[in-house]
Each structure stands twice: as structure tokens, then as C-alpha cells.
Write a protein that binds this DNA or RNA. Structure first.
Lengths: 204, 204
DNA sequence: GTCTATATGGGGATAGAC
DNA sequence: GTCTATCCCCATATAGAC
């Protein structure tokens, strides 16, 4: 009655359960959100015992942390993929657009990175965010006239704005659907340009 | 051994279980975070059966939604309480400071409002945020020269920035402790001033 | 060292009694 | 409106098979 998991001969060892768990977790989270995800269901999908994951992760949160780190890589990729002209202003605005678009297109993963699960200022999460911040600051450097502190301040301000618009979008402030996404993206871009225009106020 | 709940005679009916549940939930959330909160524990604290809450809330999420709404009221109060001079710029900056300070001082409640729990663009949550946005937009109006759309855009931009700095603070970007809080508050204030200075770019 | 089988305890949720 | 009883799912721990 029971369906055999593989025709040949079930390998006793999965092979790469750790990576498979992260992949499956990301799928489940994308389908049902973070709270809808369970170790048990991930194990079921992979055809392993519910206790198997504990060979690779101390607990559920540790797996979620690994997921958040992977999501961070995807976010970096999304942010650097968005292209927009050569002018420094345009590049920084493009990064902000990419950030909001990622949040819109991968809502559950985005929430997995920043959601409640965060125990207490998890250093792993800040580490995952570092490349993202660097992407923003890299684009901001050209606008800072060699002033390191100014570049850092501008980059962070644009990250914060993009992050905030993403949050408002998820709250429904701009409505729902593709139209809402575009509104949020446009607003984040405009705010980026405004921050650039008024950037002398950032380092008072 | 068991402590009687009332000296006189335990009323079979609690009286105002709904309100008591919201209060207790806020306490538990403040103590242990959102994920650490359970209906069962709240029921235990109130001396009622675990099934009693279901007369007042459809499920756990519905109670959390009520908590988020209450947290929103506290946030509005915190935001309007922060005073800072008469100049429109100073008032708007004060609102932003209040927002970040609230996020810092009531982290768990703040996360309860914006955390993962949000099913899908819950309208209740956006409703809870509306007064907050209005507080920002009210302060922004004086800077918009009677332009309604400009006031709305500026207000939202400042909300977004404040929200973003709050998120970065919780991630540990500015470190931990009171020092980190002050850094985030200062940065949010500076970003507000920068957005004001460059606000013509917001409504292109 | 990696996975299975199994057991414990807790929490969410429902049905029917009071 | 609340309680008791009940079910199911899940996180986690332990012992043992491979």
C-alpha cells in the first residue's frame, strides 16, 4: 500500500539532507508563509523521519535562520540586477526599486528575513543584510564626494526608506495587486531622489 | 492552595474576558515575544479554560489582530507625545523620533503589528496604521504649501523612513542597547530633514 | 555520522454539557 | 459564556539500526 520512495532501493542516507531541507523550507514558506511551515511537513516531503533534521539543525529556528541567509543572497541579487542608467542617482534609485520589487515578489521570504522569528537582534540576520547595505552604499559612494561617513549615511537612509515602503506595501497602504507594487516602487524611487537632493542634512 | 480569583464567589462568567485576553496577550507578548505567546497560557493566567477565548475570538490570529490594533493606538500616542518646537520641520522630525523610540521601547508589540503573522495585507492592520500616517501627514501639511498630494507623499516618505530605521535597529545594524537606540533615532530625524529638504523630488 | 522508530508534552481547535 | 473532553499536529528527545 505504501508508495515506495524510489523504485530501486531506498538509500538509507539521503545524501544532502541539509541543503534539501533549506530548499524545501523555502518552498513551503513561499507557499504558506513562515508560520505555516513546519519541520514535520518538510520531513514528510523529503521522505525522511521527523527527527532527521536534527542531525543538521539544532532546532526549527536554526533552519529558518539558514533560510533567511539564503533569502538575503536572493535579495542582494535582485538589488544588483535592477539596472538604471549610469548616473549615480539613477543607480541608487534602481537599487531601491529592486529592493521593493523583491519584497513584493517574495513576500514570505522577505518576512522570513525580518519577521517576528528574530529572537533578539540575531547577528546572523544582520550579517545577511550586510551585502544588501553594501550594495546601497556602493551606489551612494559616488554621490558622497569621497566622504565615507556621508556615503554610509546616505546608503542607510535609502535602505531604510526602501525597507519602509516594502513594509507599507505589505500592510496594504497602496492597495493590492500589481498596481500597488508599482506605486510602492515609484514612491521608493522618488524618496531616494529626495534623500539624495537633501543629503547634506544627513550628516549634520 | 489555589488562589481564588475573587474573594466573594467565582462568577461563572468572567465578566469581560475579551478585554482581559487582550491585556494578558499584550503582557505575554511584551515578556516573551509574539511567538512565545499562546492562547493556552493566557487562559491559564486568567484562570479560564483553554477553550474560553474562542467565544470571543475566532482563533489565535484574531486575538493577535486585536492586540495589533491596540498597539497601533499606543504608537499613535507615542508619536504625538514627542514634542519638538514649533517649526514644521521640527514637528515632523519629532514624530519620526517618536516612531523609532516606540519601536525600540516596545519591540515585541511593534513586531506584533508588522510581524509575520500578517496573513495577507490584513485591512485591519492598515486601519490601525492610518492614524499613525495621519499624524505624519498632519505634520507634513504645513510644509506642502497647501498641496494635498505633496503633503501625503512627504508624510508617507517620513513614515517609511522611520519604519525602515526601526527595522534596521531591530536587526542590530546600530548595535545594541540605549546607544543604538539613540543612533537610530538621530538617523531617522536626519533622514526626515533630508526628505523635507529634497521634497520636490517626491512628487515628480 | 546519518537516519528510523518511538515517546513526551504542548498548543490550536471543536463538540457538547452546564 | 464557560467548562470538560477530545483530536490532531507539531517540536523535540532518546535509543538503536545502518
Amino acid at each position: 500500500m505504501a508508495v515506495p520512495r524510489t523504485t530501486k532501493r531506498d538509500r538509507y542516507h539521503h545524501g544532502d539532507l541539509r541543503a534539501a531541507l533549506i530548499d524545501t523550507a523555502m518552498e513551503l514558506i513561499a507557499e504558506q508563509g513562515v508560520q505555516g511551515f513546519s519541520l514535520a511537513e518538510a520531513s514528510r516531503r523529503l521522505g525522511v523521519a521527523v527527527s532527521a533534521p536534527y542531525r543538521h539543525f539544532a532546532d526549527r529556528d536554526e533552519l529558518l535562520l539558514a533560510v533567511a541567509a539564503r533569502a538575503g543572497e536572493l535579495l542582494v541579487a535582485a538589488v544588483t540586477a535592477e539596472r538604471g542608467g549610469d548616473a549615480p542617482q539613477a543607480r541608487l534609485a534602481a537599487v531601491a526599486r529592486g529592493y521593493v520589487r523583491f519584497a513584493a515578489g517574495h513576500r514570505a521570504l522577505f518576512e522570513a528575513m525580518f519577521g517576528t522569528l528574530t529572537p533578539v537582534g540575531e547577528p546572523e540576520l544582520d550579517r545577511a543584510m550586510r551585502p544588501v547595505k553594501e550594495a546601497f552604499q556602493g551606489a551612494a559612494t559616488a554621490l558622497a564626494d569621497g566622504d565615507q561617513a556621508a556615503a554610509e549615511a546616505l546608503g542607510l537612509a535609502v535602505v531604510a526608506a526602501a525597507h519602509g515602503y516594502a513594509g507599507l506595501l505589505h500592510l496594504g497602504t497602496f492597495g493590492t495587486g500589481e498596481e500597488a507594487v508599482e506605486t510602492a516602487v515609484k514612491r521608493a524611487e522618488a524618496a531616494t531622489l529626495a534623500l539624495i537632493a537633501g543629503r547634506t542634512a544627513l550628516t549634520s
